[in-house]
Design a protein around this nucleic acid. Sequence first.
RNA 1: GCGGGCGUGGUGAAAUUGGUAGACACGCUAGAUUUAGGAUCUAGUGCCUCACGGUGUGAAGGUUCGAGUCCUUUCGCCCGCACCA
Length: 1126
Amino acid sequence: MKYHFNEIETKWQKYWFDNQTFKADNNSDKPKFYVLDMFPYPSGAGLHVGHPLGYIASDIYARYMRHKGYNVLHPMGYDSFGLPAEQYAIQTGQHPAETTEENIKTYRRQLDQIGFSFDWSREVRTSDPNYYKWTQWIFIQLFESYYCNDADQARPISELEEVFVIEGNSRINAATDEDIEIFFEEDWKSYSEKEKQEILAKYRLTYLSDTEVNWCPALGTVLANDEIVNGVSERGGHPVVRKKMKQWSMRITAYAQRLLDGLDKIDWPQPLKDSQINWIGRSEGAMVKFPILSFPKGEEKADSKNQDKRSPGYMTGGNNSHLLIEKAQEMRNNPTPAEDALWQSLKAKNLDVKFRRQHLIDDFIVDFVCLTKKLIIEVDGKIHDSKQEQDQKRTDILNKLGYTVIRFRNEEVFGNMDTVLSEIKKNLESSIIPPSGARGIEVFTTRPDTIFGVSFMTLAPEHELVSEITTHEYKEAVEKYVEATAKRSERDRMADVKTISGQFTGAYVEHPFIEGKKIPVWIGDYVLASYGTGAVMAVPCGDQRDYDFAKHFDIEIPNIFQDIDISENACEDKSAVIANSDFISGMPAKKAIKRIIYELEQKGIGKGKINYRLRDAVFSRQRYWGEPFPVYYKDGMPQMIDAKYLPLRLPEVEKYLPTEDGKPPLGNAEVWAWNSIENRVVSNEKIDNKIVFPLELNTMPGWAGSSWYFNRYMDAQNTEEFAGKEALNYWKDVDLYIGGSEHATGHLLYSRFWQKFLFDKGLLPVEEYAKKLINQGMILGTSAFIYRWEYENGESDKAKKIIFVSKTKMESIIKERESIENSKRGVIGEHVDLVNVSKNTSSDKWSHFTPIHADVSFVNASNELDIAAFKNWRPEYKDAEFVLEDGKFIVGREVEKMSKSKYNVVNPDDICIDYGADTLRMYEMFLGPLEQAKPWNTAGITGVHGFLKKLWKLYHTGENDTFHVDSSPLEKSGGALKILHKTIKKVDEDIANFSFNTSVSSFMIAVNELIALKCDKRDILEPLAILISPYAPHIAEELWNKLGNDGSISTADFPIFEEKYLVESTKNYPISFNGKFRFTMELSLDLSKEEIEKVVMAHEKTKQYLAGRTPKKVIIVPGKIVNIVG
RNA sequence: GCGGGCGUGGUGAAAUUGGUAGACACGCUAGAUUUAGGAUCUAGUGCCUCACGGUGUGAAGGUUCGAGUCCUUUCGCCCGCACCA
């Protein structure tokens, strides 16, 4: 009986479907095992032969684990929101849902045909409202949460509101926007509802913010960085501008450390971990604040009498100075009687120091301050009795900034000015803190130990302080520079690393440890606004970029390294000893860093800080085909739709393009407003901003739905929860996840973030969702090229025939041409005559060959082109001429990514028809290691197909090749048993190591050997069928059935390896001389070293190879090798 | 520049702890069989050499009785990040 794979495969696929063979139960006595594949985006092109590679591997694993007695969850679904369906909709008007539905049907048919053991009852589709309902729900949970750094977990936002009412935000340690300001309970109470919401947004784990995006007006959409090439759109080459847009962001940065720490707990490939580590980009260092010495507005009056002799003042105000400065002026002009009295006294008494009144310190207006001594004097009226607590907080903050605050009551000032003054004097004496303002430039540095080597400071041109600190003199130059950099795209700036550019601002900061040392502040585009604080302390002797900058602009380069020459290059070596650095001189970097951080913290001007490269993730897309946000806008502020009313379904639109005024496609929807009373979507006409409000027009990005789908599989039909507690606790996490490494810093990072968040909320039992992950390598295509002869020398190409030249011939023409070139004969070779091309007599202008992709389906295994098929492919090739070699046309081959445009796609459907699914499965595994990229070559498939035929034959040794096994008990002859157990052992090990390619080999070896033995024993062939069943399930089911078993083979117990069948009594020892193998000797394994030596030395070949010499040494490793040295 | 991975026949690749390099296949060669084959079977196939033998895992060193495997240097290819302070 022949191996009719098509019949067998259809039969068993139907059986599995009818019997729900692979439906997993959420309740079982068996241990659980969860095998997951990355679900595909169902594209219109269908699956090619590369896609199922990972699915086959995971299916083998899942089937193997079922044999091993596990309750296996092996689901599949579709990541069905996405761009191609939307673009197709723009072109054709067909609803993306319809296209997607069609594509899914194709996918399902293709997947079924390969015989996967998926539990389809748990299928998920991200575009299904029953699914995205829960994606929206998770979004709401994120909105209602903030990240508490003290508890190191996400907490409800309502907690914050409770604290704000009682004591403001000064004691909250949370992950927030950078520009968070301190406020007190009175402030909170005085804020409007909108202001409160604006503040809370800075804490929420998802928030709206103005984000710079790449806007392409011609395409009417935002583009991702990788969709832009050389400043224009990849598609169509339209210009792209940077534009600020209100976008949803995810505060993934809150989880940076935990995302890093979690990697230690999971068995994922190291390269993938490395790229996540790299992406998160943790660096340890310090924040240092350099006080600004400048001529800021207001301060420059300090010495207005003599413009040339202006001395720098200290900018001590905080970030809100611009709001407070007028008020301070007003207060200066209208002092209270007590303030006025004290002011007069302070001026009159010569205290040797300068006092300022109503001065800005951070975001406070203090009554009097001596900046050089950092002493603040406050004069309070009665009103302050009721505000003591608030005053204390203000004092605390000022103390933190290094100021001493002393407080007098109005009565004291009027009653006894002398006592007040002597008190002030006393404080001035004791205070020896050097001057420093609250206003300063903060920098992040990983090398705080090099702080004494700072000779300038560089700000990113976009830094917010640039406009404030630039002096009059440099204003024009700075503005010009800022404008010039703004014009260049981020990409240009990054690509152009070599050009050094920058501009001095005229401003100075003061060195934190060297009193009075002025450090010039520059701007330069080598500093990125988006990393750290957007400012660097430049240490030219310790950083090459700073060094180059300093050299270029002729800035001093102080050397702070002991015995290191920095005349040519900076020294970035951390092992250098610090010198010329006051209290850290002589220390190695590590110690110096510790000390500096300690000192910075003591002085309140800096602290140890861990900085991350990771940015918050922009979560808005200006697309139609994605999850709608469950958000409407009231007074411009986002409001969440109550979870009860989810899903918020995608509205119908007429056009899938953005609107003419640049709104996202959902702006075309006519019924897209939220009635907050009836809690339903209503027509836009009803918007009154009282009850009916506009809905969000953006949709969620592709990674929203894929960030939690693995949890949904555990309880895919649940309508009450995103997944039930019981199911979640049973399946817990993925035991094996297989997918591509291209998702390393996308899906695989975002999904870990969501998992951790949901874990924090107590909604999930584990913090990492996938214990083990394998990246399958890409299967590459083998493109076929044919070589087109290109005419030159001015003759009209169009009039000429299209001529293709067979590969070897083409190569020999080129070779010949080279030799002609070399000999400068200028005569063309005979091959050109053969193709009737007029001879080129000028040797400097050769015609040449252009390789053209030919569809691989026109090419056979011997690289011969089916010329007739090729001519029919394209009308322009109809009359083409072909120059053959030995009567054949041979194509060139090259390995490339499999893609439609390269005509090298191999369809699994064709393989299944020609060779069967079992052959496809085994061949894909046989190609090479799972994790490695490898080219597809259909020609090689015959080896695996032949193997399956041999396997079939092994069970069909009856008359006329009918099914036959010998069920009589096995005789003693251990040969077959040894083969079986050797194979069991190998397959067990290989599956444990995900080395599927080698187990296919061992099956081949086993079958070859069993055929040689003419083995027909049931005791061998039955376990063999189970062994092969994970790899080739259809043929295994058929054989299992023929062996007389009922039901599916899929849960048959996997054969158990027994060592006893492999025990050998002898070993064929390799005998080496000086490490060189010469011959073998069959010896008993019972022999001792001495006995082996004796036998080997007595062997005549040994004598022959020794040729009379006496060996110096004989190495004997029992059971392994004999090596004779001498 | 930084981080990671990989270099073994004509091709895809094997080689648990260092112990007979190239298993298993493809391809190729020869033969058998068949009306024919892209079917089946047999034998051979790293390279050099008629052979004896020599040589061989990108290259060069080293450790070792013994190295594809360990160490150092170096070259090439691929992937990720990229002025990250």
